[in-house]
Each structure stands twice: as structure tokens, then as C-alpha cells.
Design a protein around this nucleic acid. Structure first.
Lengths: 152, 152
DNA sequence: TCTATATAGATGCAAATGCATTAACCTTGG
DNA sequence: CCAAGGTTAATGCATTTGCATCTATATAGA
């Protein structure tokens, strides 16, 4: 018996849909931001995490855990954010290797502006296409594809 | 009345899940290919379309329609595929501007090898996580997020 | 304490991407 | 037939990404 193991047609279709749709939606959102003269989505992700973290800020490695960015990616993204005055790097007392990243007032403002556009994209691309109930079901099903699986 | 329009919590969650999960799964699949010493997923997409197109091949602009790649992206990807001997560019009779791209025997072989790994990833990451019925439901829901919406 | 190892983050270099433009060819209207 | 405009594909240049490595600090073990 050979090791064939081609996925089921249902699995292939779900995979293809997932990849296609996510890329398409992401590109639409990205395009809307660009059209508004705002920074790319990646910046939003980081600003969002930092805004939630509050005054305490976050260490770069914590951002890596929360987002899915690679280490060098975060390192350079933070450098750009700092150059734009959206975040600040503070030395951390008990660990001389790293620093804490804190969002600035300007960073919060940029995040607000981005959310105005990004949120609208989410509404148009997702919120307007499925009912609340259907959205919940999609979330639940996708959650089970996550690693580790999400219960809710 | 202000123009607030923050998306519903359900929409936000579905969006976040979609973005996270798709990136995570894509990266897993990509990693598996790399670990097997095979080319990236983008190559598979193109080889797949070309394999389906058969001996007639496809024009670059047709590949752009079928995949979601940008024009310059396809142009360079095809250059790399050609350099590796996986596709060949044939002049097209009635249009001197472009050429037809045809997959070579080596290209088919590479695609086969990639599918062995890629298919396994799909099975593990998706096929093994949800039932056939659930997969069908995910596909249907995601299809409605597509542009244009898919019926099935 | 001193050495080995682990962790945090930055960076040099090569490859890929995005953007704008260009080159080549086709089509259409006069 | 010719000019104007459209389509197909490639490419120069700047930015971004990926990989590997490197520096600096921290921690654990002899």
C-alpha cells in the first residue's frame, strides 16, 4: 500500500478558500489604508498591541508572541515606528539587554486614524456580508484550525 | 450623528481569526516545503494552474487572473521558473507581444513532489481538524466573503 | 568566581516585492 | 495607411523581507 494521502476534496476546497479569501480581504484593507495615506496594516497590529498594553508598554519579545511577526521583522518595524515618533524605547531596569516599547500620543492618534479606515474595511468586507450568527460560526470553526485550538 | 461605524464585535473577531489563522497555516505549509528542500508555495500555485491548462499552456495575463499575483510578480516568478527549467516560454502566433507559458516534464515532477508535502500539510492542518461537513460549511461561509461571492 | 550556555535584540547581505515607467505590439478611427 | 490609444510584459530603483550572524546581557553549573 502506497503513502498517497491526498487530502479530501472538502479539505482542499476549504484550504483554497481560506487562502484566497484572506489574501483578497487583506489586500483590500491594505489598499484602503494606502488610499487614505496611512501606514500599512502591520503598523496597526503593533500599535494596537501597544495601546492595549498601556503605559507599561511591552518588550519586543512580547510583541513577537502577540503578533506573528519574526524577530528581525519586529526589530525593524519598531525602528521605523520610532523614527516616525509613534513609539519610544525605554531602557528596562532589571534587564540591560532590551527595552520597553511604549506608544506615544502621536502613535495613539495614528492608530485612531488607521482604525477609522480599517474598521470601515472590516465592516464592508466581513460585517456586511454575513449575519452576526454566521460570523460567530466562522470564528468558531476557524478557531479550531488555530494552533493551539481556540474553544470559543 | 457622528460617523462612528466601528464594526460589530462578531465582525472584528471573525476578521482577526481569519487573518491569524490563514497566516499561521500558510506559514506552516511554507515551512514544510522548505524543510523538504522544495520551492515556496507561490511556485506551486503557478505550476498547478499550468498543469491544469495542459499542453496549450497559459498566457501570463491568464495566470494573473487565476492567481492573485501582481503583474510584475508573475513576470519575475516566471523568469525564475524558466531559469529552473520548470516552464518554457513559447512565442504566440497571433500576438507578438506575449508568449505562452507551458509546464515542462521537470515542472510536472516538481509539482508532484511539492504536492506530496503540501497535500500532507493540508490534511494535517485542516482535514484532520474539522469534519467533512464542517469543512463544507467553512467553505460556504468563506465563499460569501469572496469578491465576487461564490454560491457553492 | 569563572566558564558555558541561553536569551534579547540588531544588522550585513542576498533575495523578493512594490511602484512607476518603459518597450513592444495590437487595434481602431480617421 | 497612419496616428492615438490600449494591452502585454519587462525592468530600474527603492523598500522590505529572510537568513544567518553578531553583540550584549543574563543565567546556570562547576
Amino acid at each position: 500500500m502506497t503513502e498517497k494521502a491526498t487530502p479530501s476534496p472538502e479539505a482542499i476546497k476549504a484550504w483554497a478558500r481560506l487562502m484566497r479569501v484572506s489574501r483578497q480581504l487583506m489586500e483590500s484593507a491594505e489598499e484602503a489604508l494606502k488610499a487614505a495615506g496611512l501606514p500599512p496594516l502591520a503598523w496597526y497590529d503593533v500599535l494596537h498591541e501597544l495601546a492595549e498594553a498601556g503605559e507599561g508598554g511591552l518588550r519586543p519579545f512580547q510583541l513577537i508572541e502577540r503578533t506573528l511577526f519574526a524577530q528581525y521583522n519586529i526589530s525593524r518595524l519598531l525602528a521605523r515606528l520610532e523614527a516616525d515618533g509613534l513609539v519610544e524605547k525605554l531602557p528596562v531596569a532589571d534587564d540591560g539587554r532590551g527595552h520597553t516599547i511604549r506608544i506615544t500620543a502621536k502613535g495613539r492618534e495614528t492608530r485612531r486614524q488607521m482604525w477609522a479606515v480599517y474598521g470601515r474595511s472590516i465592516t464592508e468586507l466581513v460585517g456586511a456580508k454575513l449575519s452576526a450568527d454566521e460570523l460567530t460560526r466562522v470564528s468558531a470553526l476557524l478557531g479550531r484550525l488555530r494552533h493551539p485550538p481556540a474553544s470559543d
